[in-house]
Nucleic acid binder design. Structure first.
Lengths: 234, 234
DNA sequence: AATATTTTGTGATATGAATCACAATGCATA
DNA sequence: TATGCATTGTGATTCATATCACAAAATATT
């Protein structure tokens, strides 16, 4: 979603940094537009928890830079539900309902986050129909994505899911066929619902078969077609 | 979500049935409030498909009465994602984005549906912030629910998932410990991600252990605690 | 009522992937 | 540079559950 489109047309100061916004928004550009200055933002390093499941929170977080993982306590391990990269709003559903975080969000790279008070955010929604429509669209997208992902995870077997993860990283997160794996193998296991050992075995296998090349944590896709085939069959 | 709360405060006729709404809504009560007359609604019988994956559609459907299953084509079988009972809006994410249905919805009981044109629905959102806020809340709820469900499905083993399904039916759908199973065993398999055979075996087992009693398609929960325990462990 | 069709029950077997166990490597920090 | 902790590689074994195969019910259809 293009956040630049959602600058609110009101004549107030920015709630976050109290700066008169140049484009006449309730949030100034720095807080809504990730391409601007890093005024009023918080820095996180890899491993820092940005939002913690179970905690009370009255802020929506806007991820300006970096990558995070959304994860929640499952019955037997910490399920990673999604990898998200900037720009994105974080913790929306959590903060909206009962204000108890229903999942955790942890930085998996350096990250910059700016916090928006939930009541303010709510007013923003009220005041700007375009903004709230955009949010609805995004939530709808998420729901569909969730459905698909869930159906795939449970129906495909491990190889297919791992292939999907790699393709997803390449196309949606890094937009390149060569990238550095942003999570450990056990995390991959928790994302793709297999054991750490299986991930290790399968990655070696893919490399042996010439589908990928691995140099330390760097992964290069050598044969995208093969990956897609592996993803499809089962 | 309590749909009665979302009657829009505008002075137009109902777009669906062109009746001047008594409560001054853009949709008259019959189209927003499921407890009113069945004016302008379509009847479905068990097995009828209300929304078909892949079809073009410009309507949101409002389920006034009955139960439906939301399902979509997975890599190897038709994944059932959720059982929904009235009142509820159906096909929101589908119709919002590209207008191609991303999943199917099929009646699993007699059902009454009233269709709302998407453009109208959009205007409703624009005009009534309370309504759109309610929709956002609901979508957020769905997302959380999705996360939890997905984590459970993949982490728990079959017995636990089946126990969950039974508890979900009892508490959320039928609101009674005795109910008639609304779907076949193979459908249960597709909902809970196991084979039809496993469902059959596990149901017999639960019955043998005195956790449930089955009389044809009727299921009675005899020991809710046991079910919860089965759900928890694995 | 009689036949067809879908749904269910249950055994036997096959299999994907978890788990256990331990070595090896890499990475951080003193 | 050395020591410690986290990550990874790989074999052997176990286990839950899918799959196959067929019989028995139950439901629908003529």
């Amino acid at each position: 979603m293009n956040h630049n489109a959602y600058i609110c047309r009101m004549e107030n100061d920015c709630i976050k940094c109290s700066v008169k916004p140049k484009v006449a928004g309730v949030l100034c550009e720095c807080c809504l537009d990730p391409s601007k200055t890093n005024h009023a933002t918080v820095q996180f390093v890899k491993g820092d928890m940005i939002i913690k499941q179970g905690n009370y929170s009255t802020n929506v977080a806007f991820l300006r830079k970096g990558m995070v993982k959304i994860h929640l306590a499952g019955p037997s391990y910490e399920q990673i539900v999604r990898i998200v990269k900037a720009p994105a709003y974080l913790g929306l559903p959590t903060t909206f309902g009962n204000k108890i975080n229903q999942y955790s969000i942890t930085a998996i790279s350096e990250a910059q986050v700016c916090y928006i008070d939930i009541d303010f955010f709510r007013n923003l929604l009220k005041a700007n129909e375009q903004f709230s429509y955009g949010i609805i669209l995004e939530l709808c997208q998420n729901e569909l994505e969730s459905f698909r992902r869930c159906a795939n995870r449970t129906q495909k077997q491990a190889r297919g899911n791992l292939a999907d993860m790699i393709l997803d990283f390449a196309t949606n997160i890094f937009e390149s066929d060569t990238f550095i794996l942003p999570i450990s193998q056990s995390e991959m296991g928790n994302l793709v619902d297999t054991s750490r050992e299986s991930i290790s075995r399968m990655l070696s296998e893919f490399a042996k078969d010439g589908v990928i090349r691995m140099t330390g944590k760097q992964l290069e896709i050598l044969n995208k077609n093969s990956l897609q085939l592996i993803s499809q069959n089962g």
